[in-house]
């Protein structure tokens, strides 16, 4: 069994006893203590910055890989400018290649939002993942 040795205070190690505390030494300890806190927390801040940089770089790389093909259907018979589907309805079949349903739903919502065309006026034929994640 190992026991961490009980350390005496650094102050006693240096000055022999606590009786040796003077206002000058108290000032010195206060300054060193405050700087220690600032330095340690600044180190953590730098570490967080580094981790955030790594994560954003990885995310950007992944975002480039996941390119999707979203093809609007030409000559779609049902939803058209003059004849949209009811808001809560959809029709036809959507082929998903390498993309799960939640991702597909998100992409369709994004296309709708960016093009400012309601979903009930859009039809998607397929959504395909161009390259697999490694």
């Amino acid at each position: 069994m190992t026991i961490t040795p009980q350390m005496l205070g650094i102050f006693t190690d240096i000055y022999g006893s606590y009786e040796a505390m003077t206002i000058g030494r108290a000032l010195l300890i206060a300054v060193v203590g405050f700087l220690t806190v600032v330095c340690i927390l600044a180190l953590i801040a730098l570490f967080i910055k580094l981790v955030a940089f790594i994560f954003s770089a990885v995310e950007k790389k992944n975002a480039k890989k996941v390119e999707t093909i979203i093809t609007p259907v030409e000559n779609s018979p049902a939803p058209s400018a003059g004849n949209p589907l009811p808001e809560a309805e959809s029709q036809g079949e959507l082929e998903l290649i390498g993309v799960d349903e939640p991702t597909a739903a998100m992409l369709m919502a994004l296309v709708s939002y960016k093009t400012e065309i309601p979903l009930n006026r859009l039809i998607f034929r397929s959504i395909k993942l161009v390259e697999d994640e490694k």
Binding site: F34, V37, V38, A45
Partner: peptide
Amino acid sequence: PISLLLGAAAQLGI
């Protein structure tokens, strides 16, 4: 992360 510096400065009173 700059918040950490504010958290450090607020130990001044100690």
